Simulated assay, not measured.
Amino acid sequence: MSSDVRFTDFKSDKQPTWCPGCGDFGTMNGMMKALANTGNSPDDTFVVAGIGCSGKIGTYMHSYALHGVHGRALPVGTGVKLANPDLEVMVAGGDGDGYSIGAGHFVHAVRRNVDMTYVVMDNRIYGLTKGQASPTSREDFETSTTPEGSKQPPVNPLALALASGASFIAQSFSSDAMRHTEIVQKAIEHDGFGFVNVFSPCVTFNDVDTYDYFRDSLVDLAEEDDYDPSDREQAKDAILDADKEYMGVLYENEDSVPYSERHGLDSDMSDIPDGAPEDAMDLVREFY
């Protein structure tokens, strides 16, 4: 950990090729600022990304990084964290990558509660493949492959996380730089799996879920005096509220015990030697 690191230390020399105005710029900047604010440095940070526009983020951030395959970023991040617990592991994905082909991995990553951070750039569309409906697209959202709308209700990732036993659930907006940074920072500081769904507008293919829409519709929980993020029932009501969308920490279990502590994992899994005790090998087999 370093106390004098700046967020610009996390910028690589590769120039982003996202569309001008893409919400992913703000999402990434907030991630870098949050990492710097928590005292992390590029030398102790590992960024894992999947496929989609979000998958490019490991190239644009100066840290250890791995660009995985579609929907598989979370198991890679889990392996990295267990192999080297001293690393700050941040997994980045999109709504298509995380809530479609990667949905099964999402559920199990949530329930395992490995101490890492998962940031999902939710633009409610498949942007990299030119604008198809994603798991979080509106039911009536018209695209080239769903000209009459998908006619399927969108996935509620916050509800899925809560039902899976999440210890930290938050939502942010890429355009609100200060709040977004603050929310991601809280996820990093949380002891366990920190999940942040980020509204990151696609300016090229989604003309419905725009910057203006989120600015006008989002309710910031920081301004709700009676909201208690440690109250799971209150969090459930907010997450299932069909009339409002919230920004902030919706739920945090302050008594969260990360996976490594529950299993008494006090050394790197990468250091387990040949002929290790059977109980140690059982721990490895759980992931394969």
Rank of each mutant, 00 (worst) to 15 (best):
A65H: 15
M61T: 15
N29V: 09
V257M: 11
E245M: 14
D282R: 12
M31W: 02
G68A: 12
L283Y: 12
G102V: 05
G55S: 09
I101D: 02
K81H: 07
Q185V: 05
L265M: 15
K236R: 11
A222L: 07
T78M: 12
V198I: 14
T27K: 08
A222Q: 11
A109Y: 04
V196P: 00
G30Q: 08
P147R: 09
M90G: 03
S41L: 03
Q185F: 00
S174D: 09
S12W: 11
M281I: 15
A34V: 08
K56Y: 10
Y227S: 01
K186F: 05
L265D: 05
D216Q: 08
P135T: 06
D191M: 13
A73I: 06
I239M: 02
Y288N: 13
R232C: 01
D44N: 15
D216C: 02
M178L: 13
S256G: 09
S100H: 09
L82D: 12
M281K: 13
D274M: 12
A36E: 07
S167D: 10
A177L: 11
N123R: 06
P153C: 00
P154C: 04
K56H: 11
M31N: 06
A222Y: 08
K33N: 11
R72S: 04
V89G: 04
L160F: 04
K236T: 05
R111D: 06
A34E: 04
T17V: 10
V89Y: 02
Q15A: 12
K151H: 14
M121T: 07
I101E: 03
G127V: 02
S175L: 08
V196W: 01
Q132S: 12
S270K: 13
Q185L: 11
D122L: 05
A280P: 07
V249G: 00
Q185T: 14
T210E: 00
S175Y: 11
V89R: 08
V76Y: 14
P273F: 05
E148N: 13
V203C: 01
D9P: 03
P157T: 01
Y288I: 14
S137D: 01
L160H: 04
R112A: 10
E189S: 15
L162G: 01
S54T: 08
Q152F: 00
P75F: 03
H108R: 14
A187P: 04
F10V: 06
G275K: 09
P20K: 10
S134N: 06
L162T: 05
G98I: 00
S200T: 14
D9I: 08
M269Q: 12
P201V: 06
D95R: 02
G96K: 10
D279L: 07
C19V: 08
T78E: 14
